[in-house]
Design a protein around this nucleic acid. Sequence first.
RNA 1: GGAGGGGUUCCCGAGUGGCCAAAGGGAUCAGACUGUAAAUCUGACGCGCAAGCUUCGGUGGUUCGAAUCCACCCCCCUCCA
Length: 436
Amino acid sequence: MNSSGKSPDSSSEKDIISDLQSRNMVVQLAGGDELAAHLAEARRVVYCGFDPTASSLHIGSMVPLLALKRFQMAGHKPIALVGGATGMIGDPSFKDSERKLNSTDIISDWVEQLKPQLSQFLDFDCGENSALLVNNLDWTQDYDVLSFLRDVGKHFAVNAMIQKESVKQRLEREGEGISFTEFSYMILQSYDFAELNKRYDCTMQIGGSDQWGNITGGIDLTRRMHQNQVFGATLPLVTKADGSKFGKTESGTIWLDPKKTSPYAFYQFWLGTADADVYKFLKFFTFLSSEQIDEIEAQDKASDMKPQAQGILAREVTELVHGEQGLSAAVRISEALFSGDIASLTAEDLQQVEQDGLPCSTISSESNGIVEVLVATELAKSNKMAREFIGNNAVSVNGQLVADQDFALTQGKALHTQYFVLKRGKKLFHLVKLVA
RNA sequence: GGAGGGGUUCCCGAGUGGCCAAAGGGAUCAGACUGUAAAUCUGACGCGCAAGCUUCGGUGGUUCGAAUCCACCCCCCUCCA
């Protein structure tokens, strides 16, 4: 969908750092003026790490991941590192409490699940700047402790480590502490950078702004171990204008894995972006140029209508993550549920909606009371809540408001003798099929 | 190992024998208003239609009655060794 494999000397374009800056995507740069020259000079190798903290990446990881892609598009060679080793330790950066360790089995399983997700945005077959996927477990698991402490640990001053902003609150906050395990995380990540520098001549690391301490640690270590000057940049952690946490909804985190967050739910998430955030998110999460985005914003400002930006954002990002198919499925469901008259949907429409990934359950004619069905479909988490929703006029079936708590989903009321489209609140839908 | 401080409902955090299903804030959900925004207002926020039932790290105990008192245990933090 996007061109790639350009040579690094396509000097007519903006350099990658200026491009990122125009998107407000640079928080800190290590290396300053030298960095721009370094990147302009030749094809460079750029890395970013992703730890397996779940079985899927979530949308928060997209900013650095897409940034790697942006580097590749600018002609550089990206390395996506999956943290099979660092994931076993747990990054304490800006975390307010110690985390419990996951079992090694789970972590290696997660590593495998993350690999295809990390790969999907990058081009692994475009010649000189083909992407690389590596696992830091490869160079740490057989490193013996004594050698590690002598060769690597010796380069770190604890005095400096405890000064890092990223662990300060853990050291100072009353009621919290930090284990040596987590405290050592920085050393491991620093070593990754040094190792990638040695193996692949990697000279640049990017990461979220919480990674600044770990990145600068790696820069120092690489200089000490290999006498090489390397560089770093941090990207913004995505925040929302209203202060609430980005990437979460009622039903939880927005994952990249379509089995965990359906393309429809994913699309709806982006569609719900606040006006105050949407232009910023377009810059972070899409490959539209800054100029195009500014133009969209100007048009929205000039118009009295509802802004077009959310729709553009939702389409761009859904297509990027779930492909054309995923996007069209998401759009089909959305149109069926939000713009049409639900009762007039054909049986084929409803089947399509089910296939497209709208949550769907079956019920039998013995257990078709509305309260029961709301709980069974998890539209309400208890009978009590279900009754409250009905009392608040928050529930509708096939487009008809349900006011009666004893309402039953009988065949006579079904669409095409078996379908019910349940709606709770303004945007939560569930398809129910009646089976005899 | 020693001394001290803690573990309360999703989170923070009050509560030190009955007035406690447990203050307050946050988050979340619903409704009104809207643009499937934001802000604002209203309501809900352990389970149960209800009577009532189950909760305050765990287990036992004291008591008519315990989140609150006692014993033991588990976990966390700080300082000292």
